[in-house]
Design a protein around this nucleic acid. Sequence first.
DNA 1: TGTAATACTATACGACGCGAGGTATTATGT
DNA 2: ACATAATACCTCGCGTCGTATAGTATTACA
Lengths: 105, 105
Amino acid sequence: MDAQIKRGLLDILVLAAIKTEDSYGYKIIKDIKPYLTLSESTLYPILRRLEEGGFLTVNSQEHNGRLRKYYHITDKGMEKLNAFAEEWKEVMAIYDYVVREVDAA
Amino acid sequence: MDAQIKRGLLDILVLAAIKTEDSYGYKIIKDIKPYLTLSESTLYPILRRLEEGGFLTVNSQEHNGRLRKYYHITDKGMEKLNAFAEEWKEVMAIYDYVVREVDAA
DNA sequence: TGTAATACTATACGACGCGAGGTATTATGT
DNA sequence: ACATAATACCTCGCGTCGTATAGTATTACA
């Protein structure tokens, strides 16, 4: 997929990935992979930004002798997810405009 | 609208705006405004990138004593517009995933 | 014994959106 | 006549962000 388009969806995809149950870096990448491939160097800065923005909290837990950081969505994160559904209407309006112009060929 | 999401649509929106008939900077901004507000300092670099990429050609013409740059879409630009419709399926798959997680609340 | 998978981190580069500011002409309102 | 808005283009510089590259350390498997 075009690199540009997916960038706007990264934050929201990551939030969606931890919505149902807390998750951690490596798992998030695997869960999202069918929809969009992202590397660790892309994900971890996003997680840090989302934490700084108050959209999620971090909770380190030991797993098999190693530390694992579990990410938990906050109320603010939930609001962001819900707001996304609203924003989508504007995105679809743009899509309709573009396709209309294409069909006008 | 969230600043992030629309950025991925900028290039394609600009191409769509010159698809039906050649247009120029100021007009493109006005035409797109109902869908997305962008400033001149955002548009002109995009036009230059699209030209460098071969998606459009530029043709300066005098209008009321002033120079006006008309932008004309190329075959490659048309292909990019058509490819967008295909890519959109992947975008919708992401949207469905996000909404599904939201509804699982 | 070595290679892949798991799990997180830091650095540095390039691309990009955009605010701020600049130039010049024409049209509109007072 | 004067001021303001609209038209039409451009440049510079800042901050954000995606990502390649590289590093550390443990566990599982062949």
